[in-house]
Protein backbone atom coordinates (compact mmCIF):
# COMPACT_ATOMS: atom_id res chain seq x y z
CA UNK A 1 0.00 0.00 0.00
CA UNK A 2 2.65 2.43 1.09
CA UNK A 3 4.92 1.48 -1.73
CA UNK A 4 2.30 1.94 -4.44
CA UNK A 5 1.37 5.28 -2.96
CA UNK A 6 4.93 6.48 -3.09
CA UNK A 7 5.29 5.23 -6.66
CA UNK A 8 2.23 7.22 -7.64
CA UNK A 9 3.70 10.28 -5.92
CA UNK A 10 6.96 9.89 -7.80
CA UNK A 11 5.00 9.53 -11.02
CA UNK A 12 3.02 12.65 -10.25
CA UNK A 13 6.20 14.58 -9.64
CA UNK A 14 7.93 13.16 -12.67
CA UNK A 15 5.21 13.37 -15.29
CA UNK A 16 5.17 17.14 -15.82
CA UNK A 17 8.93 17.17 -16.11
CA UNK A 18 8.85 14.31 -18.60
CA UNK A 19 6.23 16.02 -20.72
CA UNK A 20 8.05 19.34 -20.68
CA UNK A 21 11.57 18.05 -21.16
CA UNK A 22 11.53 17.80 -24.99
CA UNK A 23 10.42 21.42 -25.23
CA UNK A 24 13.01 22.51 -22.71
CA UNK A 25 15.72 20.60 -24.56
CA UNK A 26 14.72 22.08 -27.92
CA UNK A 27 14.62 25.60 -26.54
CA UNK A 28 17.95 25.06 -24.80
CA UNK A 29 19.56 24.07 -28.08
CA UNK A 30 17.80 26.19 -30.67
CA UNK A 31 17.39 29.38 -28.67
CA UNK A 32 20.00 29.56 -25.94
CA UNK A 33 22.48 27.29 -27.72
CA UNK A 34 22.47 29.45 -30.82
CA UNK A 35 22.58 32.64 -28.79
CA UNK A 36 25.75 31.29 -27.21
CA UNK A 37 27.07 30.23 -30.63
CA UNK A 38 26.41 33.67 -32.14
CA UNK A 39 28.03 35.36 -29.15
CA UNK A 40 31.06 33.12 -29.57
CA UNK A 41 31.24 33.87 -33.29
CA UNK A 42 31.18 37.59 -32.57
CA UNK A 43 34.60 37.18 -30.92
CA UNK A 44 36.11 35.20 -33.80
CA UNK A 45 37.54 36.06 -37.21
CA UNK A 46 34.68 34.30 -39.05
CA UNK A 47 34.21 35.52 -42.60
CA UNK A 48 32.39 33.40 -45.18
CA UNK A 49 32.06 30.34 -42.94
CA UNK A 50 32.18 30.12 -39.14
CA UNK A 51 35.72 30.03 -37.78
CA UNK A 52 36.75 29.33 -34.21
CA UNK A 53 39.85 31.51 -33.87
CA UNK A 54 39.23 34.09 -31.19
CA UNK A 55 40.22 37.67 -31.94
CA UNK A 56 38.90 39.44 -28.85
CA UNK A 57 36.55 42.41 -29.09
CA UNK A 58 37.90 43.56 -32.47
CA UNK A 59 34.59 42.96 -34.23
CA UNK A 60 32.79 45.27 -31.81
CA UNK A 61 35.37 48.03 -32.27
CA UNK A 62 35.05 47.78 -36.03
CA UNK A 63 31.26 47.56 -35.83
CA UNK A 64 30.99 50.86 -33.99
CA UNK A 65 33.47 52.43 -36.41
CA UNK A 66 31.24 51.66 -39.39
CA UNK A 67 29.20 54.49 -40.87
CA UNK A 68 26.45 52.13 -41.99
CA UNK A 69 26.01 50.86 -38.42
CA UNK A 70 25.73 54.48 -37.25
CA UNK A 71 23.04 55.11 -39.84
CA UNK A 72 21.28 51.89 -38.82
CA UNK A 73 21.25 52.87 -35.13
CA UNK A 74 20.03 56.41 -35.84
CA UNK A 75 17.28 55.00 -38.03
CA UNK A 76 16.30 52.53 -35.34
CA UNK A 77 16.06 55.38 -32.81
CA UNK A 78 13.85 57.48 -35.11
CA UNK A 79 11.75 54.56 -36.24
CA UNK A 80 11.42 52.96 -32.80
CA UNK A 81 10.39 56.15 -31.00
CA UNK A 82 7.85 57.27 -33.57
CA UNK A 83 6.50 53.78 -34.16
CA UNK A 84 5.88 53.06 -30.49
CA UNK A 85 4.54 56.53 -29.69
CA UNK A 86 2.16 56.76 -32.67
CA UNK A 87 0.96 53.17 -32.34
CA UNK A 88 0.17 53.64 -28.65
CA UNK A 89 -1.57 56.98 -29.18
CA UNK A 90 -3.62 55.75 -32.15
CA UNK A 91 -4.35 52.42 -30.50
CA UNK A 92 -5.54 54.06 -27.30
CA UNK A 93 -7.62 56.61 -29.21
CA UNK A 94 -9.30 53.95 -31.33
CA UNK A 95 -9.92 51.77 -28.29
CA UNK A 96 -11.57 54.61 -26.36
CA UNK A 97 -13.76 55.54 -29.33
CA UNK A 98 -14.73 51.91 -29.90
CA UNK A 99 -15.58 51.56 -26.22
CA UNK A 100 -18.43 54.11 -26.48
CA UNK A 101 -20.97 51.27 -26.93
CA UNK A 102 -21.31 52.08 -30.61
CA UNK A 103 -23.27 50.10 -33.18
CA UNK A 104 -21.51 47.43 -35.29
CA UNK A 105 -18.52 47.48 -32.99
CA UNK A 106 -17.60 43.91 -33.95
CA UNK A 107 -17.33 44.78 -37.63
CA UNK A 108 -15.28 47.92 -37.08
CA UNK A 109 -12.98 46.18 -34.61
CA UNK A 110 -12.29 43.46 -37.15
CA UNK A 111 -11.54 46.01 -39.85
CA UNK A 112 -8.99 47.77 -37.65
CA UNK A 113 -7.43 44.50 -36.62
CA UNK A 114 -7.16 43.08 -40.14
CA UNK A 115 -3.84 44.68 -41.21
CA UNK A 116 -2.23 42.61 -38.46
CA UNK A 117 -3.23 39.48 -40.38
CA UNK A 118 -0.98 40.50 -43.28
CA UNK A 119 2.67 39.69 -43.42
CA UNK A 120 5.04 42.65 -43.28
CA UNK A 121 6.22 41.75 -46.78
CA UNK A 122 2.71 42.28 -48.16
CA UNK A 123 2.33 45.53 -46.25
CA UNK A 124 5.73 46.65 -47.53
CA UNK A 125 4.99 45.94 -51.17
CA UNK A 126 1.53 47.53 -51.02
CA UNK A 127 2.85 50.70 -49.37
CA UNK A 128 5.78 50.80 -51.77
CA UNK A 129 3.27 51.17 -54.59
CA UNK A 130 1.00 53.53 -52.68
CA UNK A 131 3.91 55.83 -51.82
CA UNK A 132 5.62 55.64 -55.23
CA UNK A 133 5.35 59.11 -56.75
CA UNK A 134 5.00 57.63 -60.25
CA UNK A 135 1.94 55.46 -59.60
CA UNK A 136 0.76 56.12 -56.03
CA UNK A 137 -0.80 58.94 -54.03
CA UNK A 138 1.20 61.69 -55.74
CA UNK A 139 0.22 60.54 -59.23
CA UNK A 140 -3.45 60.18 -58.26
CA UNK A 141 -3.73 63.62 -56.63
CA UNK A 142 -1.91 65.24 -59.54
CA UNK A 143 -4.29 63.42 -61.86
CA UNK A 144 -7.21 65.06 -60.04
CA UNK A 145 -5.80 68.40 -61.06
CA UNK A 146 -3.66 69.48 -58.11
CA UNK A 147 -0.55 69.65 -60.28
CA UNK A 148 1.86 70.99 -57.69
CA UNK A 149 1.07 68.28 -55.13
CA UNK A 150 4.20 66.44 -54.05
CA UNK A 151 4.54 63.41 -51.80
CA UNK A 152 7.80 61.71 -52.67
CA UNK A 153 9.10 60.81 -49.21
CA UNK A 154 10.00 57.29 -50.25
CA UNK A 155 12.47 58.66 -52.82
CA UNK A 156 13.83 61.30 -50.45
CA UNK A 157 16.77 60.16 -48.38
CA UNK A 158 15.87 62.40 -45.46
CA UNK A 159 12.23 61.38 -45.31
CA UNK A 160 12.33 57.72 -46.39
CA UNK A 161 12.60 56.40 -42.83
CA UNK A 162 9.24 58.05 -42.04
CA UNK A 163 7.51 56.07 -44.77
CA UNK A 164 8.52 52.94 -42.89
CA UNK A 165 6.91 54.42 -39.77
CA UNK A 166 3.70 55.04 -41.74
CA UNK A 167 3.50 51.47 -43.04
CA UNK A 168 4.40 49.92 -39.70
CA UNK A 169 1.88 52.04 -37.80
CA UNK A 170 -0.84 51.11 -40.29
CA UNK A 171 -0.03 47.47 -39.71
CA UNK A 172 0.14 47.37 -35.90
CA UNK A 173 -2.03 50.10 -34.42
CA UNK A 174 -5.11 47.90 -34.72
CA UNK A 175 -3.41 45.27 -32.64
CA UNK A 176 -2.50 47.81 -29.95
CA UNK A 177 -6.13 48.94 -30.05
CA UNK A 178 -7.25 45.39 -29.30
CA UNK A 179 -4.92 45.21 -26.32
CA UNK A 180 -6.18 48.51 -24.92
CA UNK A 181 -9.78 47.53 -25.62
CA UNK A 182 -9.31 44.40 -23.54
CA UNK A 183 -7.87 46.60 -20.80
CA UNK A 184 -10.83 48.99 -20.99
CA UNK A 185 -13.31 46.13 -20.72
CA UNK A 186 -11.61 45.06 -17.53
CA UNK A 187 -12.30 48.35 -15.75
CA UNK A 188 -15.02 48.25 -13.15
CA UNK A 189 -18.09 50.16 -14.38
CA UNK A 190 -19.18 50.99 -10.82
CA UNK A 191 -16.07 53.06 -10.33
CA UNK A 192 -16.88 55.14 -13.40
CA UNK A 193 -20.48 55.64 -12.30
CA UNK A 194 -19.29 56.77 -8.90
CA UNK A 195 -16.94 59.28 -10.46
CA UNK A 196 -19.71 60.58 -12.72
CA UNK A 197 -21.98 61.06 -9.70
CA UNK A 198 -19.18 63.02 -8.10
CA UNK A 199 -19.30 65.30 -11.14
CA UNK A 200 -16.13 64.27 -12.98
CA UNK A 201 -15.96 65.43 -16.60
CA UNK A 202 -15.38 62.80 -19.33
CA UNK A 203 -11.87 64.12 -19.84
CA UNK A 204 -11.03 63.90 -16.15
CA UNK A 205 -12.67 60.49 -16.01
CA UNK A 206 -10.28 59.14 -18.65
CA UNK A 207 -7.25 61.00 -17.43
CA UNK A 208 -7.57 60.22 -13.74
CA UNK A 209 -9.33 56.86 -13.69
CA UNK A 210 -9.32 54.96 -16.98
CA UNK A 211 -5.86 55.55 -18.42
CA UNK A 212 -3.97 54.92 -15.15
CA UNK A 213 -5.74 51.57 -14.92
CA UNK A 214 -4.47 50.64 -18.38
CA UNK A 215 -0.90 50.43 -17.13
CA UNK A 216 -0.53 46.65 -17.63
CA UNK A 217 -1.95 46.92 -21.17
CA UNK A 218 0.39 49.77 -22.08
CA UNK A 219 3.39 47.95 -20.64
CA UNK A 220 2.58 44.87 -22.70
CA UNK A 221 2.07 46.95 -25.85
CA UNK A 222 5.34 48.74 -25.24
CA UNK A 223 7.28 45.50 -24.90
CA UNK A 224 5.64 43.96 -27.97
CA UNK A 225 6.18 47.09 -30.08
CA UNK A 226 9.74 47.65 -28.90
CA UNK A 227 10.95 44.24 -29.87
CA UNK A 228 9.08 44.44 -33.19
CA UNK A 229 10.86 47.72 -33.89
CA UNK A 230 14.28 46.27 -33.13
CA UNK A 231 13.85 43.15 -35.20
CA UNK A 232 12.04 44.88 -38.09
CA UNK A 233 13.54 43.50 -41.26
CA UNK A 234 10.96 42.26 -43.75
CA UNK A 235 9.07 45.56 -43.88
CA UNK A 236 12.23 47.53 -44.67
CA UNK A 237 13.36 45.01 -47.26
CA UNK A 238 10.00 45.10 -49.06
CA UNK A 239 9.42 48.84 -48.78
CA UNK A 240 12.80 50.47 -49.52
CA UNK A 241 15.41 47.72 -49.33
CA UNK A 242 17.59 50.06 -47.30
CA UNK A 243 17.48 52.80 -49.94
CA UNK A 244 17.67 55.47 -51.28
CA UNK A 245 21.38 54.89 -50.93
CA UNK A 246 21.76 53.55 -47.42
CA UNK A 247 19.18 55.94 -45.95
CA UNK A 248 16.86 53.36 -44.41
CA UNK A 249 19.35 50.73 -43.27
CA UNK A 250 18.31 49.29 -39.87
CA UNK A 251 20.24 46.94 -37.55
CA UNK A 252 18.43 43.82 -38.80
CA UNK A 253 19.19 44.51 -42.47
CA UNK A 254 22.74 45.37 -41.47
CA UNK A 255 23.10 42.08 -39.63
CA UNK A 256 21.82 40.06 -42.58
CA UNK A 257 23.97 41.79 -45.14
CA UNK A 258 27.20 41.56 -43.11
CA UNK A 259 26.67 37.95 -42.11
CA UNK A 260 25.44 36.49 -45.38
CA UNK A 261 26.18 38.82 -48.29
CA UNK A 262 29.40 40.52 -47.30
CA UNK A 263 31.09 37.48 -45.80
CA UNK A 264 31.95 39.34 -42.59
CA UNK A 265 30.22 36.96 -40.26
CA UNK A 266 32.18 38.16 -37.21
CA UNK A 267 30.85 41.70 -37.54
CA UNK A 268 27.38 40.41 -38.37
CA UNK A 269 27.39 38.29 -35.22
CA UNK A 270 28.58 41.27 -33.18
CA UNK A 271 25.68 43.36 -34.47
CA UNK A 272 23.25 40.53 -33.65
CA UNK A 273 24.58 40.46 -30.09
CA UNK A 274 24.16 44.22 -29.77
CA UNK A 275 20.54 43.86 -30.95
CA UNK A 276 19.94 41.06 -28.45
CA UNK A 277 21.33 43.22 -25.65
CA UNK A 278 19.01 46.06 -26.66
CA UNK A 279 15.98 43.79 -26.58
CA UNK A 280 17.14 42.33 -23.26
CA UNK A 281 17.53 45.82 -21.80
CA UNK A 282 13.82 46.38 -22.51
CA UNK A 283 12.39 42.97 -21.70
CA UNK A 284 14.35 42.02 -18.59
CA UNK A 285 13.16 44.93 -16.40
CA UNK A 286 9.61 44.23 -17.60
CA UNK A 287 9.79 40.55 -16.69
CA UNK A 288 11.42 41.44 -13.40
CA UNK A 289 8.64 43.82 -12.43
CA UNK A 290 5.97 41.34 -13.56
CA UNK A 291 7.47 38.49 -11.58
CA UNK A 292 7.99 40.62 -8.50
CA UNK A 293 4.36 41.71 -8.50
CA UNK A 294 3.21 38.11 -8.64
CA UNK A 295 5.39 36.81 -5.81
Amino acid sequence: MDRSRSARDTMRDLLPRLVLSPTVALIAIFVYGFIAFTTYLSFTDSRMLPSYDLVGAGNYTRLFGLRTWDIALTNLAIFGTLYIAICCALGLGLAILLDQKIRAEGVIRTIYLYPMALSFIVTGVAWKWILDPGIGIEAVVQGWGWESFAFDWIKDRDMAIYTIVIAAVWQTSGFVMAMFLAGLRGIDGEMLKAAQIDGASTFALYRRIVIPQLRPASLSSFVVLAHMAIKSYDLVVALTNGGPGTATEVPATFMYSYTFTRNQMGIGAASAVVMLMTVAAIVVPYLYSELREKS
Binding site: R47, R67, T68, R157, G243, G245, T246, N263
Partner: peptide, 28 residues
Amino acid sequence: TSAVQRAIFDVVTEHFNSDMSSEDAVEE
Protein backbone atom coordinates in the same frame (compact mmCIF):
# COMPACT_ATOMS: atom_id res chain seq x y z
CA THR B 1 35.86 39.96 -52.26
CA SER B 2 32.27 40.54 -51.29
CA ALA B 3 33.33 42.53 -48.20
CA VAL B 4 35.28 45.08 -50.25
CA GLN B 5 32.79 44.99 -53.12
CA ARG B 6 29.86 45.88 -50.84
CA ALA B 7 31.92 48.54 -49.07
CA ILE B 8 32.47 50.21 -52.46
CA PHE B 9 28.74 49.77 -53.25
CA ASP B 10 27.98 51.71 -50.05
CA VAL B 11 30.14 54.69 -51.03
CA VAL B 12 29.07 54.78 -54.66
CA THR B 13 25.37 54.60 -53.89
CA GLU B 14 25.67 57.02 -50.97
CA HIS B 15 27.45 59.54 -53.19
CA PHE B 16 24.99 59.08 -56.07
CA ASN B 17 21.99 59.56 -53.80
CA SER B 18 23.21 62.55 -51.79
CA ASP B 19 25.06 65.79 -52.35
CA MET B 20 28.38 64.39 -51.07
CA SER B 21 31.31 66.13 -52.78
CA SER B 22 33.65 64.13 -55.01
CA GLU B 23 36.57 64.77 -52.67
CA ASP B 24 34.62 63.42 -49.69
CA ALA B 25 33.54 60.41 -51.74
CA VAL B 26 37.14 59.61 -52.65
CA GLU B 27 38.14 59.81 -49.00
CA GLU B 28 35.20 57.62 -47.93
